[in-house]
Design a binder for these strands. Structure first.
Length: 293
DNA sequence: CACCATGTTCCTTG
DNA sequence: CCAAGGAACATGGT
């Protein structure tokens, strides 16, 4: 469920359920996701502490926790969460059985937070190194057209592949990279250093609009974060997917993704068949007529 | 069985 | 050292 908009909506949902809660127990079922920490290390640092904040940075979640004064803690301990491709996080009653593929769970007051992840590509760890490599927040002031353009000049990679580099802009993933390029009218195969200033500016705006719109969509949908939903309205899945919203256009998600996963379908603007191609081993979708080479 | 999948990181190649 | 490409990670859906 993982690009910036999905993580943002998830953070908005989780925050009121977590902030102020005390972590009573930490259970690590799949140690791979807490690497390079050990389960005992994670427990030692977190049990007894209180969650004070929850912030999103790119596709990452940062849980702020106070030290446990009764056990001599002094330094505030941030925890990094990442959903990989298939991770989900939600809060449920501590009475319910643990869901399948639970990787880590935290016992809070009367509830528990579940981090579930079948493929185990995500993380729940005290190791913050990956956040430090991130580029600017695309929706923040620090993401400037000038710096964006300057950084693109240094690369001969196709622009679509470049957009996936989290050090360039934090939070754009495979879906929204295609979507932003469609909105900007730029062919994904264009060499990064050959984009003109006007195109770079358009792309910069398109990235922001695409992400903003997706966040608004996620907020407006009546998402189910219980962990029990399967299909439509499942806030734990990435809600932008055409097939999830398919059949219920009234929910507002059906036409949201304009090119992603729509190979062969008519372009919503000109009717030309959308094409799929593979770049850096990932699928890219574009309209051959609307997106100039 | 074959192929595809929202991501990151490590290794190799040039 | 750098840029770029590809594989690996592990599991489920179609």
């Amino acid at each position: 469920m993982p690009e910036l908009p999905e993580v943002e909506v998830l953070a908005l949902h989780l925050r009121p359920h977590l902030v102020g809660e005390t972590i009573r127990e930490v259970h690590v079922i799949r140690p791979r996701v807490i690497r390079p920490n050990s389960a005992s290390e994670l427990s030692r640092r977190l049990v007894g502490s209180r969650v004070t904040s929850l912030e999103r940075r790119g596709k990452f979640l940062l849980f702020g926790t106070t030290p446990d004064s009764s056990r001599g803690g002094v330094t505030e301990v941030p925890v990094l969460g990442h959903l990989g491709m298939t991770g989900r996080m939600f809060v449920q009653s501590a009475e319910l059985p643990l869901p399948r593929h639970t990787a880590v769970h935290l016992l809070l007051g009367r509830s528990r937070m579940i981090y579930q992840d079948p493929r185990l590509f995500g993380r729940f760890t005290l190791d913050l190194s990956s956040v430090k490599e991130l580029g600017p927040e695309p929706l923040g002031e620090e993401f400037s057209v000038e710096a964006f353009h300057a950084r693109l000049q240094g690369s001969r990679q196709p622009i679509k592949v470049r957009l996936l580099d989290q050090a360039l802009v934090a939070g754009v993933g495979n879906i929204y990279a295609s979507e932003a390029l469609f909105r900007a009218g730029i062919r994904p195969t264009r060499r990064s250093d050959q984009l003109r200033a006007a195109e770079t500016a358009r792309l910069h705006g398109a990235i922001r609009e695409t992400l903003r719109e997706a966040i608004e969509c996620g907020i407006s949908l009546d998402l189910d974060f219980s962990g029990q939903a399967t299909g439509e309205g499942d806030g734990l899945f990435y809600y932008g997917r055409a097939s999830v919203a398919g059949g219920s256009e009234s929910k507002g998600g059906g036409e949201r993704l304009r090119v992603y996963d729509r190979a062969g379908e008519p372009c919503v603007v000109c009717g030309t068949a959308i094409r799929r191609l593979v770049q850096a081993a990932r699928s890219t979708y574009f309209c051959p007529r609307c997106q100039k080479r």
